[in-house]
Design a protein around this nucleic acid. Structure first.
Lengths: 209, 209, 209, 209
DNA sequence: GATGAATGAGTTTTCATTCAT
DNA sequence: CATGAATGAAAACTCATTCAT
């Protein structure tokens, strides 16, 4: 699909598209990219195999399209976030606010919940082709910018190899994401409200100077 | 295999067993449990498919057996470690020492390096049957004991839901493991010597009170 | 399409028709009838699948239509050629002249170059339905007429089973066609001018009495 | 399959192997390499898909293996033939003798009859991978040697581009092969006996000086 | 003890064709 | 006239597992 702006996919009946995305997100989150079965996705969604290939080039195209759409929704709804604008005073608070908005968005968009599970799988699945690989690197780049900004401001630790610090930070973010998904339904309102502060506190413990 | 104590596997020629384990560790670490191909493992190791099924019940049995043996080797070589014996003074130092010994062991047992990659995959691979599931729970139990002991001693934080703390801790341990595997060959001796202190410092930042 | 005289195809915009024919000729010549992919043809030509099925009954109809039009163009441009008018003196010279004109025509009609590749595939591709089969038989009939005329004049050999002689003749014509297509761009003008004489000399060696 | 000498295939029950080879030869001869369907071959032969992949790497391996075995049988049974030993007196006679022996061999090995159809398809099927491509080039090389030897002896024409002469010769050989396959069952003994002389005469007409 | 051999069910992807609008 | 959309059937290939010897 050369032109990512106007796609056949956009004309697909919204209900069918939702059913497909939900089935696919579930499958990808559960088994990763390589392990996911198109057959299972199609069975769950009720779509025919050839229809899927009418809307997507291949399995990888389905996967990356979903990731990209997820990210687009998140960024659009959460709003921009430029690490360069952070200063010493606002550094940690900004993340707490960001986290708060992210939770609000996901709360309104049911299927985005699977997003984390899909996304972090990118690291583990080899042979995923360059498309998904580049996607993961983009996210890593983003975390890197934040950490470097924090280090420049003197609020993020500098006593460790940078790659280790970044890997650890991403890994913690993934864990927080998974934890929220796994426990969301059992959380009371008070607990939900406490999440941003608690989780960013943990993040801060890990990487602050 | 009902009785895990006396197994056919123990009578298998040591060389062939090693070749099999090395091939399998490589494959499992690279593709995860579900993604790993028995055919590829057998091709690499030169063992026949029917022989494998003589020694193991199935793919899952091969996998869990390897994990168990890895853990057994690690525990035997590293020596016992009973969380109950820790006190406030020795708490963090004990981990640093443990880490130091673990590195020494792995340094002497080449194929154990793949172990981490295999082990942490357990969390992600569903449909692995209860065998691998139980294994991962056992490791989680172990981390839980340590954290609870630390909390009882007042050196580990108590401001977060325990499951979140445990998940985060395990996730960080995984990251440390992966990082070492990925960077080991490029590290100088001085850097290697600094690892235990650096990594346990990071761990401490995350969970200390 | 029952009536081959007035066809929807004739009302198709000339540019679109040319683009379709060029794409199809390329595909058919490259992969044969069975191996050719309608999807690829449509992708190259930019035509929609349903449009194609508006103008043609099916894949075979597209193929035979193109062959028929190619032949029509060739015959019209080259001019009539009635074997019955040949006599002993003019027999071989007539072919040389025919060959000369054929080359001139093809030189002016780029996409006809693919024609040979498409046409001779007819022999090899079974399951093409009777349409393509009849087409090939028509061409064979034409060669038969020529050979029988030559035999009647005493200039063509009669020492072999006729079917063998005809098959061999057609096979050589195919080879000459392929050779020209394959080497055309590397030939100098002098070599091009020598082609008719050389090739007809070879043809003559094969079948002359 | 690394070692072409001792193969699993050699241990396959002779009946099943024959059934497979016959089905495959029929399919390949009828549809060419690309057009042939493994499913159809398996259906005809009664073999399971996974069994086929136990004995062969892939479709191409099945095809090239059959070609190679055919050639091996032919060469073994027909006996060596070294172009360098030919001289002016024996040149054409040698081919006649060769042809005679080839017919005798094929007459005793039923399924080899399909061989020609399979082999000459090599030229037409693109994307056949290097394996089949190399095979065809080897055959072409062999014809080239013969023609060059004939030219050196002064018995083969030199008035045409060599590539054209070789292509024409191979093409005629293919036609002779096809013709024999197509007409064999309708030929009386006298006609069969006349074949070598007739066919080599035709070959001689084409390329002799 | 050991293994060669066989298989059904699974994988992703492409095909020519049809139909409603 | 024109086409977007949908599909069942088929393609090549891999899987973990079993069984007879």
């Amino acid at each position: 699909m050369v032109n990512p702006v106007s796609r056949r996919l956009d004309k697909l009946d919204a209900d069918r598209r939702t059913r497909l995305f939900e089935s696919a997100a579930e499958e990808f989150a559960a088994h990763g990219f390589d392990g996911a079965s198109l057959n299972r996705i199609l069975e769950k969604s009720g779509m025919s195999k050839s229809s899927l290939y009418y809307y997507f080039d291949d399995k990888a195209d389905l996967f990356t399209t979903m990731i990209e759409r997820s990210l687009a929704v998140l960024f659009r709804e959460i709003g921009g976030f430029d690490p360069a604008t952070l200063d010493t005073e606002t550094f940690w608070g900004a993340f707490e606010e960001l986290y708060r908005r992210a939770i609000a968005v996901v709360d309104r968009n049911a299927w985005l919940v699977q997003f984390g599970g899909m996304f972090y799988r990118l690291r583990n699945d080899p042979g995923q082709g360059s498309a998904t690989g580049r996607l993961f690197l983009a996210a890593r780049k983003w975390v890197t910018l934040i950490i470097e900004r924090g280090q420049a401001l003197g609020v993020v630790r500098t006593d460790l190899p940078q790659s280790l610090l970044i890997d650890s930070a991403m890994s913690l973010l993934e864990t927080l994401d998974r934890w929220v998904v796994a426990h969301w339904s059992q959380l009371g309102q008070a607990e939900k409200d406490a999440l941003p502060h608690q989780h960013i506190a943990l993040f801060r413990s890990l990487i602050s100077a």
